[in-house]
Structure formats: structure tokens, C-alpha cells
Simulated scan of single mutants.
Amino acid sequence: MGLREEKKQATRAAIADAALGLFLERGFDRVTVADVARLVRVSVNTVFNYFPTKEDLFFDRQEEVVQRLPSAVRARAETESAVAAVRRAFLAEIDQGEATLGLHSGMAAFWRVVDESAALQARLRHMRDRTEEVLAETLRKETGADADDPMPRIAAAMLTATDSALHAGIRRRVLEGQNPDSVRAETRRTAEIAFDALSGGLTAYARRSDPER
């Protein structure tokens, strides 16, 4: 990464960090982009250059979140199905404390801001829908499915719904004030149950061919 790109990344991070601080303090709907720009000492146009909407300021890692499941499918091992790959990736995130899961202190305040804002709730739904759309296209490409084959869309819907339910469970427990370690353990147990159930119907779907055969 060159110096110019490093400066851009630093500016983006500074804007996002400042925005989050204001959102947590005042609530999403009571903060303007101009408020963020003044705090960081940049122009409003500069903020919009990095974040096209105010919702993008709050969910500044949304593209990373959207790509989680498609990336897991693309990275699956030989003979590994899509379900197995997503399961392995999710459990690894749990074990490694992936930040986007929200299993750390301070996340209750984050989710309370979301609960108070219809705009942020709508963006969450959009992110889920976009994840399903990108995953379906990834599965179609990975399996060579025809355009009229419904399985990539069906499998994407099932995988996205399972992942969404697990994240909703984390959010609920965090808002209840449960200890992050307890939430992690319970979520891991629930994930095992969920993916076991899902595997019953999709256990062989998108399995890579065995190169030895």
C-alpha cells in the first residue's frame, strides 16, 4: 500500500470512528453528516466521498459482512460442500473472536442505536438481502448451474437465513446484557445444531469433485 492509499485509509477510519462516537452518544437520527465533518475537520463532501450515505457511516464494514458467506463458499476445500464450508467459517469466526460478530464489550450500545433507528433497521435488512443475492450468484458460478436452475437461489436463501438467525441470537443476548463469553459458547452450540439440521438437506450440494477420481 502506497503513502497516498495509507492516508486515504487513515482518513476513512478517522471519519468512521468519529461518526460512531457521535451515533453512540446522541443516536443515529440526531447526528448529521455535517456534525461528523466538523468533528474530523473535513468538508461534508469529503465525508460523502468515503461514505455515500449516513447509513454507510454507521455500518462502515458492511461490504465485508456481505461477502462473508460468498467468500466461505469460494474458499471451500476439495470435496467440501457449501454448507460445510459456511459452517467451518462461522465456527472459526466464533473461536477467533471475529469483530463483526459483535462478541465484545460495548456492542449493546451499538445495537441499541440500531433498535432506535428505522433507517438502520432497513439497512440491516438490505445487507441480508444483498448477502443472499451475492451468495446465490457465487453458488451459480461455482456449480456451473444454468440460469433457470433454482438450487443456487434456494441454497443461498437457506444458508443466509441460518446465518441471520445466529446473528440475531447474538444481538438478542448482547442486548440482554449476557457475558460475551457466555454468548460465544451458546452461539457455538446453537450453530452446531443449526448446521447439523441444514446438512440433512444440503449435505452434498456444491461439493467439489474429488480430484483423485
Rank of each mutant, 00 (worst) to 15 (best):
A185N: 12
D181Y: 15
A194P: 05
A84Q: 09
L202I: 12
M151T: 10
A37Q: 01
L91F: 14
R208G: 15
D29Q: 05
E6K: 08
I154P: 02
P180E: 12
A191R: 14
L139V: 03
F195Y: 15
E212L: 13
A18Q: 11
R128L: 03
P180V: 11
T187Q: 15
T143C: 12
A147M: 08
E98F: 13
G201N: 01
R38G: 05
D35S: 12
R87I: 06
G97H: 07
N49I: 02
A197G: 15
E5S: 07
D56M: 01
T190H: 02
R68T: 14
R74W: 03
R171G: 08
E176V: 09
V73F: 04
L20W: 03
V42K: 10
D163Y: 15
A157N: 07
S209D: 12
R26C: 06
R74A: 15
R41D: 09
P211D: 10
A197C: 00
T100H: 08
L57D: 00
S71P: 00
A191K: 11
E132D: 05
S164C: 07
A185H: 14
L166F: 00
F51K: 01
A191E: 12
K141D: 14
E6C: 06
H126P: 00
I170S: 14
K7Y: 10
T79C: 12
R140M: 07
T190G: 05
E80I: 09
T160P: 00
S43C: 05
R208F: 07
V36I: 11
V114S: 07
R189M: 03
A161I: 03
A197E: 07
D17P: 03
R12N: 04
R112C: 02
T160Y: 00
T79Q: 09
G144F: 11
D210G: 05
R41M: 00
V44L: 04
A194W: 10
D56I: 02
E78G: 14
L101Y: 02
E192H: 09
I193Y: 08
D129W: 06
K141Y: 11
R12Q: 13
T190S: 05
F195S: 01
